[in-house]
Design a protein around this nucleic acid. Structure first.
Lengths: 257, 257
DNA sequence: CGCTTCCTTGAGACGGTTCAAGAATTGTGG
DNA sequence: CCACAATTCTTGAACCGTCTCAAGGAAGCG
């Protein structure tokens, strides 16, 4: 299989050195999912077993990972990139119902069916493995299940955060909240730091709109407003600098005119 | 270890008759949570242990169960009634981010803090127990953890369903979707049945509005519209009959003029 | 019966959408 | 490296759905 892939660490930028690597499959060494992700709950033996069925793959932007209604047979770990979970109505209305980042687990245990589609928002690197093998491991490893449970709870918290935003925030507040979420995801250690934060927005305007329940035009207008107010500095549509995170945070709750 | 456990069925919602009730604590006999809820994963011994710390209580409508920011020390099972999970903004804007029904588990394992408030939407009967005891049981019972995980996944699915509704549905579609959700919750066995379904809406207009991201007035107008169109028959504001569930379902996706 | 709470209905205002045009950016082949 | 096409993003003007404000009616409760 592909064992020459220089995978995961690049994402968080923290290469990590294990002293005792001898038992760990080659493909898994230096993989972020093994530390922060669910694979961290697996023993070297389990890891070895799983790695035998593992396929690493890259999905280009807007490419499908799991299609709605599909009887999927694989789970994945995100090694790099951003995955969007979307829902589509018959008349074309679309909504992003969740965003996932490395090293999140993609899949729905206890079901092989879902109304939700998983698509690559950016180019995405995945580590995929058969549902069947994983399901069996889940059944036998309480540690693994605990990690999955914790991720589910975190996603539930996030989902409710966005329910709140979608239901009660104005367009301006929604866009500010979205940018803040991305900024915090990029740099989790600097929540209150007053040094500028520079990052790439992993979504295009159309995706931001689908995430926030707005139109492309409204998103664009609100970003312009934030730019003109000096809350953000826009480099090339995707790249943004936030000089003062607190000013951005203030925009998430007050519909500053 | 546990070889006498009648676990699996409960998940699928099949009420189950226990022949051997002798070991089960008196308070737990005839409790729905022991069958369909998480307690079904516990052995009689565990059940006995937990029941020693158990308090059954009733919370009147709009009463607090867990307040936002509170360092809560108890979990609960819902025995009857409806619980609303809400978020509040500084300026008073409010949003219901989740609804829970019997026999759902209320609480947030792995955290003792949450931005979310749990309130009684109707009068609610609860079975509460100390977080500490439960956390320990979770740590030692993979079956229990699995049930909690499954509930979390189900809630996540639901949350995403509503993210979709909040982001992309019109007021008319939102109200129809809400009524459908309640109707299906009341009578899960008759999803496609064409006989009329009669039920009580467990929320007042203000709560429906907070759930759907609308105002009271808009909710009221849309209910009136559905009534005038013959999709629903309103008895006394709370009590509603749906003559044809399919007609209601059709209203959830098409903004019928 | 009178109080409070809850619900309905109307008229006008406003935020976000729709429709339309054009600018900026990215990708591609010569 | 440039010319061209495709995609993505921005901006403006008119429209529409929902909100806001206001009043009154119905239901629940002492």
């Amino acid at each position: 299989m592909r064992n020459d892939l220089p995978t995961a660490d690049a994402i968080a930028g923290k290469p990590r050195l294990d002293v005792h690597n001898s038992d760990v499959p080659v493909v898994c060494r230096a993989c972020e999912a093994r530390h922060r992700g669910i694979c961290g709950a697996l023993t070297p033996q389990e890891l070895t077993r799983l790695s035998r069925h593992t396929v690493k793959q890259t999905v280009a932007g807007d490419g499908a990972i799991v299609s709605s209604g599909e009887d999927f047979r694989h789970y994945s770990n995100i090694l790099a990139g951003v995955v969007k979970l979307t829902r589509l109505m018959a008349d074309g209305r679309q909504q992003i119902v969740g965003l996932q980042f490395a090293p999140d687990f993609v899949g729905r245990p206890f079901r092989s069916f879902s109304e939700t589609t998983a698509e690559a928002a950016t180019d995405v690197k995945l580590c995929s493995f058969p549902k069947q093998v994983m399901d069996e491991m889940i059944a036998h490893s309480p540690d693994l299940e605990r990690r999955l449970y914790q991720q589910a709870l975190d996603e539930l918290d996030e989902a409710r955060e966005w329910i709140f935003a979608l239901g009660r925030k104005t367009a301006a507040e929604k866009v500010a909240s979205f940018l803040l979420m991305i900024a915090e995801n990029v740099d989790p250690e600097a929540p209150s730091g007053d040094r500028p934060i520079r990052f790439e927005i992993p979504l295009k305007r159309a995706d931001i709109a689908d995430f926030l329940g707005l139109t492309i035009e409204t998103v664009s207008r609100q970003i312009t407003r934030l730019r003109k107010a000096g809350v953000i500095v826009v480099e090339n549509n995707r790249t943004v600098t936030v000089p003062d995170l607190e000013r951005l945070r203030a925009r998430c709750e007050v519909d500053a005119a």
